[in-house]
Write a protein that binds this DNA or RNA. Structure first.
Lengths: 334, 334
DNA sequence: GATATTTTTGCAACCGGTTGCATAAACTAA
DNA sequence: TTAGTTTATGCAACCGGTTGCAAAAATATC
C-alpha cells in the first residue's frame, strides 16, 4: 500500500542508497540529487518507514510511558506535559497502563518486543524489579515521581517526600495548631512512608504538640473522605496533612458534610497543587509539587541517556513550597 | 544486545524458519521441535522483535491514540479505559497530543511513518482532513466522541449532541423554569453547535419560556466561571445548561462567589457526569455521557475493522440520561 | 512392504530500510 | 594538463524477522 524507498528510487532513476541518504541528515548527497529525489518522493507521497529503519539503526525513538495513576487528575497534567515534551524531541510515547496488571513482567516483555529506546515510569509506586529488568537489558529508565535515593539503580526525578513531610509539619506548627494529624495515603506506598517519616521527625521536635496519624486506602477522593469521616467521629485533630490534593478534597467534603467549617474547625493542607486546588470552590492550601520541572527534567535526562548510554544513574530532586489558600488558618500574629 | 532468532536457531540446532514458526501461532511445528526451540529461547532469554516481524506481516499492532483534550479531567478516565481496552486486545497505544499542534499534518505523517494499524481520535474537535488523510492511506480511523452523521467518512462513536441539547432543554422545562440559559462551550466546536441546535429546537416548542445563550472561550473551569460571572452581572437566567461538567463547576464557583445559591437562585445542569460531578462538595446535576460504552465500542469497532479492512464506515450513537444531584431544583409537584 | 497422503522442515527470497566500501565524478593545486 | 583530493554515488550485505515452495520425514492406506 504505502510507497517504498525502492519505488522512489526507480522513479527518480537513482539508487536506493541515494534515496535513503536524502532522508538521513548528515549524509552526503549533492544538491542536484536531493532535488531529484525529493521531487519523486513528493510526487509519490513517500514517507520513510521509521520501523524498518530502526532495524538497522537500532533506534526506534519509541519511549515507553508507564503509569498506574489513571485516577488522579494530576496525572492528566503529567501526561500532557510528557507527551508534548517527548514530541518536541521527536520521541514517541508508547503508553502503558499498569493499573490492573498483576504481572508487570508482561509489560516489560512487551516494551522489549517493541524495542523502545527508553522507559519513563511516572508513578510513586514502581513495582520492584521493573526498573532492573530494563537496566539489565540496557534500556534507559527514568523514574519520575520516584523515591529519592542517594545511589539509585535508575534515574530518579521527583521531590524528597521526607522533606515534604517536614515542610507540612513545620507549616502546621507555625500556624499554632496544638493537635496535628497525618492523614496519609495507602501505607504501602513509599511516598506515604517517606512523608510520614518526615512529618513525624519534624513533629518530634515539638513535644507539646499532640500528633495522631492514620492512612487512607488509596490516593482518592472517596478514600480521603471516608477516612476523614471516621476521624471526625472521634476527637479529631485541629489540622491535617492530607496524602495528596485529591484525598484532601475528599476530606474537605467530609468536613463540610459534617457541618464543620474549614479552616475554622478543622484545617487541611494537601500536596501536589493540582489545577483544581485553586478552583474557588475548593481553594485548597497545599504543598506545590513542581510537576512541570519534574517532567521536563525527566525528559531531558532521558534524552541525555539516549545520547550517552553509559551515563550513570542520577537523582534529581526538586523542592516544594507551600501555596497559601483557604484551608489553613493564618499564622497567629506575634 | 538483544537475542535474535538466529542465535536461538543456532543454539537449538535448527533452521531460522523453525524458530519463527514456534513463535507464530497457527504454524506447523512438531512437538519435539517446539520443545527444543522453546528450551533454547528460554536459556537465551529470547523474545521476538515485534517491529521486525511487522515488516513482513504488515501489522504493527500499534494504534495511534490522538487527542487534544489534555485539560479536561474526564479524559483521564477516557485514556484509562482506552489503554486498558487496547492492551487487552494486544494492541499498543501510541499517544499523540494534538493540543498545540498547529500542523496536524505532522502527526499524520508521524503516525504513517510508524505504520500504525489504526488511529483512534478521542476528541469532539477533529481537525478537518485529519480523518481523510488516514482513510486515503488505508488506515482505519475511529472517531470517538465525534460528531454524529448519517454518512460518516470514518467510524464515529459517541452521543447525539443535538439530542443531548434537547434533553437538557426538556429537563429545564419540566422543572418549571421560565428563563433558561444555554451556557455553551467554544462556539467553534461542533459539539457546542449541536447542543445549541438541540437546545433551541426543543425550546422553540415552549414560546412562554425566555431563552438566552452565550458561549465560553473553552471547555474549562476558568472559562465557565468567567462567563457565569459576566452573566450574573446582568439579569441572569434561572437555570443554565453548561457546556460540560468542568465549565459547569466553574459556573458553580462563580455563583457561590457572587453570594448566590445553587439551585435556589440559579440552577445548573452539566454534561458528561465525570467522576468529580458526584463529589459531595460539587454534587452537580448533569447529563451522563456513557464514556465506558463509547470507549469499549470504539475499540471493538477498531478491532473489527482491522479484521475486515473493507468494512464500511459506521456511526454508533449512545443515548444520554440525566443524573439527578443537587444543582437543579426538583420538578414542581403537579 | 510398497505407495499415497499428510505433516515437518529448511532453503532462499523478501519486507523497507541503512551503511561500509569501492569506484566515479567533481574539484584543487601546480 | 595532470596528478592529488575531496565529494557523490552505487553495489551488496545486513538489520530481525516471515513465508512460498520443494524436499524430507512421518502417517495412513491397501
Amino acid at each position: 500500500m504505502a510507497v517504498t524507498l525502492k519505488e522512489v528510487a526507480e522513479r527518480a532513476g537513482v539508487s536506493r542508497s541515494a534515496v535513503s541518504r536524502t532522508f538521513t541528515d548528515g549524509a552526503s548527497v549533492s544538491d542536484a540529487m536531493r532535488r531529484k529525489v525529493e521531487k519523486a518522493a513528493r510526487e509519490l507521497g513517500y514517507s520513510p518507514n521509521a520501523l524498518a529503519s530502526s532495524l538497522t539503526t537500532g533506534r526506534t525513538k519509541l519511549i515507553g510511558l508507564v503509569s498506574n495513576n489513571f485516577h488522579n487528575p494530576i496525572f492528566l497534567e503529567v501526561f500532557d506535559l510528557f507527551t508534548r515534551g517527548l514530541q518536541d524531541r521527536g520521541l514517541r510515547p508508547l503508553l502503558v497502563n499498569l493499573s490492573d496488571e498483576t504481572e508487570p513482567d508482561a509489560s516489560v516483555r512487551m516494551l522489549r518486543q517493541y524495542s523502545v529506546d527508553g522507559v519513563i515510569v511516572a508513578s510513586s509506586t514502581l513495582p520492584p524489579g521493573f526498573a532492573r529488568a530494563f537496566r539489565d537489558a540496557g534500556v534507559p529508565v527514568v523514574h519520575a515521581f520516584g523515591r529519592y535515593s542517594s545511589s539509585p539503580e535508575v534515574h530518579v526525578v521527583g521531590i524528597d517526600n521526607r522533606e515534604a513531610g517536614r515542610l507540612a509539619a513545620r507549616t502546621l506548627v507555625e500556624r499554632g495548631y496544638t493537635h496535628a494529624g497525618f492523614l496519609g495515603g495507602p501505607e504501602s506506598s513509599t511516598s506515604t512512608q517517606d512523608r510520614y517519616t518526615g512529618f513525624m521527625t519534624e513533629m518530634s521536635a515539638h513535644p507539646n504538640i499532640k500528633v495522631t496519624y492514620s492512612f487512607a486506602k488509596a490516593y482518592s477522593f472517596d478514600a480521603g473522605r471516608d477516612e476523614m469521616l471516621r476521624l471526625l467521629k472521634d476527637a479529631p485533630a485541629q489540622a491535617y496533612f492530607g496524602g495528596d490534593d485529591v484525598m484532601s478534597i475528599g476530606a474537605l467534603s467530609a468536613i463540610s458534610d459534617s457541618g464543620l467549617n474549614c479552616p475554622t474547625d478543622v484545617g487541611i493542607i494537601g500536596l501536589n497543587d493540582m489545577e483544581m486546588a485553586r478552583w474557588n470552590n475548593i481553594n485548597l492550601t497545599t504543598i506545590h509539587q513542581p510537576i512541570r520541572q519534574i517532567v521536563t527534567s525527566s525528559i531531558e535526562l532521558m534524552a541525555a541517556t539516549l545520547a550517552d548510554p553509559e551515563r550513570f544513574p542520577e537523582a534529581r530532586i526538586f523542592s516544594c513550597a507551600v501555596v497559601e489558600r483557604g484551608t489553613l488558618r493564618p499564622a497567629p500574629k506575634v
